[in-house]
Design a protein around this nucleic acid. Structure first.
Lengths: 211, 211
DNA sequence: GTTTTTGCACTGACCAGTCAGTTCAAACCA
DNA sequence: TGGTTTGAACTGACTGGTCAGTGCAAAAAC
């Protein structure tokens, strides 16, 4: 995942931490490609360049490794969105600007950690999974940031008070998520700016306006 | 999935066909809940009320069963979208109306076959899967319908010629997909009309217009 | 000298796919 | 009508292999 790439990152930069990081990175790619069940612990260890025993020295089980990975990644995404919204606020931007900035931040995150995003999308709507509750919490973290901006926008009259905040937030997140995954998978040569412009136009209803 | 529920449906209404149908229905739910790899053939057989051998009598392998399931489901979705677009055309509606009708058709499909949709989303962006090519084709079937409407709209001046057809189509599909899954998972009490209205508003840029 | 990692052998559960044998229903016969 | 044949459909015990997780002694790292 290469999240927290600088070695002097948060938390304790012990040797243990470095190993865990390597394991995260190996696991996220493999699980994104193959899914959780189809990915073996041996594979993860091998890709991380580490002995199998080390995996179990650092994580209680395969699913615990996965859950910690999820929390790790979503934390970064939510923080990035929040930061984008707040920055726009400080600069005196409108709420549309804030949404726009969040779209860009979302795209940036997905471009940086495509594997994580794939994995997240693939697992989010599954039921009957051990880590379902982890995912719910984690989803709420992200959607809540968007909902907050929408709510503020309605309050200050910038958005129609007829919008359905929950549904609209979900739809916006979905729009960015799917467009970005499509971009990565099917036309990776496009630039972030390109994709951002297309989504921005859609957001601002400038599709049906005939230029 | 209950697709093709009438017993005198297309194809041959043999005993075999009925069994295959039962297997589809069993498999789609289980795979949506647990994922492909985590779902065992024994489970599928049991849920379908059939012996394991029957699964292999009817399908060459577990993944062939899955691939046929995918084609089966996506065929229905694409047909439903196409039908919605054409109906709008016949009634002399605009291209925005066509998009709107497709959103409704998409929501209707997802409401009718939520498990299939979950499964589709979860598998679509995985790489390194045996059925990757099946998925690509199948995705194109759906996105192409939306692209077609966008293209027509640009041609007749209804849409800005600056829109990026591919990206916009993907984003629209994503918007509907994710909003609908969220609806089903997190606020199933909402009506289809509710959800449709929210998305329709977003599509037509009536979010930032201050009523 | 303590923490962490390694390497590897081992276990027990689980699972995809097989196959020899059984059931079913339609067609044919008397 | 009732009996018989035939092939398609179905069954479920079995096999060969895979994989999560364990245990541990010795080596590295700090």
């Amino acid at each position: 995942m290469a999240m927290e790439s600088s070695s002097a990152a948060s938390g304790g930069s012990t040797r243990r931490e470095a190993t865990r990081q390597k394991l995260y990175e190996a696991a996220v790619t493999l699980i994104a490609e193959q899914g959780f069940s189809a990915t073996t612990v041996d594979e993860i260890a091998e890709r991380a360049g580490v002995a199998k025993g080390t995996v179990y020295y650092n994580f209680a089980s395969k699913s615990v490794l996965f859950e910690e990975l999820l929390r790790h990644g979503v934390g970064l995404l939510a923080a990035s969105l929040k930061e984008a919204a707040e920055r726009t606020d400080r600069d005196g931007g409108s709420k549309v600007d804030a949404l726009d900035a969040m779209i860009r931040a979302g795209l940036g995150f997905i471009a940086a950690y495509p594997a994580f995003t794939q994995l997240y999308v693939a697992e989010l709507w599954r039921t009957n999974r051990a880590w379902q509750s982890t995912l719910m919490v984690v989803r709420q973290d992200v959607v809540a940031v968007v909902e907050g901006v929408l709510r503020d926008g309605v309050a200050n009259g910038e958005f129609s008070d007829e919008i359905d905040i929950q549904l609209t937030a979900a739809a916006l997140v979905g729009m960015v998520l799917v467009a970005a995954l499509d971009w990565q998978s099917f036309q990776p040569e496009r630039s972030l700016d390109d994709v951002h412009a297309a989504l921005s136009r859609l957001l601002q209803g400038r599709v049906s306006g005939r230029r």
